[in-house]
């Protein structure tokens, strides 16, 4: 992908999302993260539980009001947006697919009404026939049968429910989808189906994805670029090939070395790299620095030479 000419869809800068602000148990779930997402790409957000990846996603889609920072969507500032029409458009343009296909569908609504809820709210359908037609088309798009609309969520398997969740997100013709662990609750043989569907939809509808997951092999596969989160901070950002093949930050290296690979030979000789958080802790001011082209690492000014050295060793073109 050519990132020089690519259009930025989402610009997140200095986003902070704290909980219980000012109290003794203040949590800095997301602590000053900045990144951009370009049109048509998939940006993968990885990290362990508690790293703040879900909170970041929710803050971006404005399910939370960020503590501070700025989120620009197509150039418009979303934080503190007062214009109701614009806000409604934003809510329509950005949709979310949730992790748990069992908890994210209202069990008392028919699938047809679940999918059409966004259509109704946004008055997208001209008539009842139009509404039914849209729902039927959506069901077929995600690989379900058009008469599945009259059923209830409990009649479907996990993979099918996730497809319903995808159809619901697509119903309002969004431009940007946040997928928060969309396949973690699914069986291996079904995961590939859903990932393929997401990829196919991205191509057909020119969607941009923020893909949040902890399954590192799957994130690598689906993402163009990746950001590594730890303790609410972004430690490394780069193209997925580069982050995976030439990780620069100690944490990324340790995280990748822990991924189990379905290859017994590899597993027998695998050495796991321990993690010493010395380049993350302490009171040094650190920010993301572009070490190699499009490859950013969180570093303080005196740590930059070390990362440049590492990048050289990895054969990267140091800036």
């Amino acid at each position: 992908m050519d990132y020089h000419n690519a259009k930025k869809v989402l610009e997140v800068s200095h986003l902070k999302q704290y909980f219980n602000v000012g109290k003794k148990d203040e949590v800095k779930a997301v602590d000053d993260i900045s990144f951009d997402i370009y049109e048509g790409e998939t940006f993968g957000l990885v990290g362990e539980s508690g790293s703040g990846k879900t909170t970041a996603g929710r803050a971006i889609i404005h399910l939370y009001t960020p503590t501070s920072g700025s989120i620009k969507f197509h150039g418009d500032e979303v934080v503190g947006m007062k214009d109701k029409t614009k806000m409604k458009q934003f809510r329509r343009d950005m949709q979310m697919i949730f992790q748990d296909p069992y908890a994210s569908l209202n069990p008392r609504m028919k699938v047809r009404d679940i999918i059409a809820e966004g259509i109704d709210i946004n008055h997208l359908a001209k008539s009842k026939e139009d509404r039914d037609k849209r729902v039927a088309e959506l069901l077929e798009t995600v690989g379900l049968n058009r008469d599945h609309g009259s059923r209830y969520p409990h009649e479907f398997s996990g993979g099918q429910r996730q497809r319903i969740g995808i159809a619901r997100a697509l119903a309002v013709e969004p431009k940007f989808i946040i997928a928060d662990e969309p396949i973690s609750a699914l069986d291996v043989s079904i995961q590939a189906q859903v990932v393929n569907l997401l990829k196919q939809l991205q191509k057909e509808r020119h969607l941009t994805y923020l893909f949040i997951a902890h399954d590192l092999s799957m994130v690598k596969y689906i993402s163009d670029r990746i950001g590594v989160l730890h303790y609410g901070r972004m430690l490394e950002v780069g193209t997925s090939d580069e982050v995976y093949n030439h990780p620069l930050h100690d944490y990324t290296r340790s995280l990748l070395s822990a991924v189990p690979i379905p290859d017994p030979e590899y597993e027998r000789t695998r050495t796991q790299i321990g993690y010493d958080p010395k380049y993350e802790q302490g009171d040094k001011a650190r920010k993301l620095v572009e070490i190699a082209e499009h490859h950013w690492v969180q570093a303080s000014p005196d740590e930059i030479p070390m990362y440049q050295e590492r990048a050289k060793k990895e054969g990267l073109k140091v800036l």
């Binding site: 398997s157 291996v188 590939a192 189906q193 092999s217 690598k220 596969y221 990748l256």
Partner: peptide, 18 residues
């Protein structure tokens, strides 16, 4: 159907159906 860290490509082979 399991991507490894080396897997690239457009479509992941999947087992159809349930």
């Amino acid at each position: 159907s399991m991507p490894t860290l080396e897997t690239n490509g457009d479509e992941l082979p999947s087992i159809p159906g349930t």
